Amino acid sequence: MKKDVWELDEHYMSLVKDILEDERFKKLDNYIQHHNSTRMIHCISVSYASYQIAEKLHLDTRSIARAGLLHDLFYYDWRETKFNLGSHAFMHPRIALRNAEKITSLNEKEKDIILKHMWGFTLARPKYAESYIVSFVDDYEAVGEYFKSLLKKTLVKKILRR
């Protein structure tokens, strides 16, 4: 079976292997994130793209790779679950942080990355460049996943009409 680029990156894998092998992280593969990918695939995409940016900018690649994997570590369908205390955008980073702390110990930067990855939708401003990067990459990946799904549906309809 062909490996993805991120799986062939030895440095990246050395930073995140323990998380990728954890059964609690693997459970994310059971949840659809943005129409056409699982939450696990989404988290890996955000993590690896953020890691690559951090590497080019000589930032903290370990913290960004690990927190990028854990930023959406929650086990519910966000389209259906409603909260009394606030919106999904507000609540899920806190839930993800709590779940992440059950998997591994986190430094302050990793906690900030997870908690602030919804910056723009929430008012909590990130403290670190790495937190901004994950927030922007997460938005970019979400938009890409959505439009990929939309394009796929449009193409299928077009084919079926023929």
Rank of each mutant, 00 (worst) to 15 (best):
R94Y: 12
K102E: 14
K127A: 00
R125T: 11
D60M: 04
T61C: 05
T154E: 14
A49Y: 05
K102R: 15
I95F: 07
E108A: 07
V137Y: 00
L155E: 11
L73R: 08
L150V: 12
L69T: 00
S87L: 10
K153D: 06
N99E: 12
L70F: 02
K148Y: 09
S50G: 07
I159T: 10
T122R: 03
E145P: 00
D139G: 10
Y140S: 10
L123W: 13
T122C: 02
Y140Q: 05
A65G: 01
T61G: 00
K148M: 10
G144S: 11
R98P: 01
L85E: 11
Y132G: 07
E55C: 13
E101Q: 12
S105N: 14
S105L: 15
A142M: 13
E110L: 11
E141Y: 06
E130M: 03
N84Q: 15
Y132S: 08
T81N: 13
L59E: 05
V137L: 00
H88G: 04
S131R: 06
A54N: 03
E130S: 00
F147S: 07
E80C: 09
I64R: 02
L57I: 10
A96C: 09
R79K: 14
L150E: 12
W78P: 15
E130C: 01
K116T: 12
E80N: 14
H92I: 15
P126H: 09
M118S: 06
D112W: 02
K148V: 02
N107I: 03
I159Q: 08
W119Y: 12
I114E: 02
R125P: 02
E141N: 05
R94P: 06
E145Y: 08
V156F: 09
I133K: 00
L57T: 04
M91H: 05
K102S: 12
G144N: 13
M118N: 06
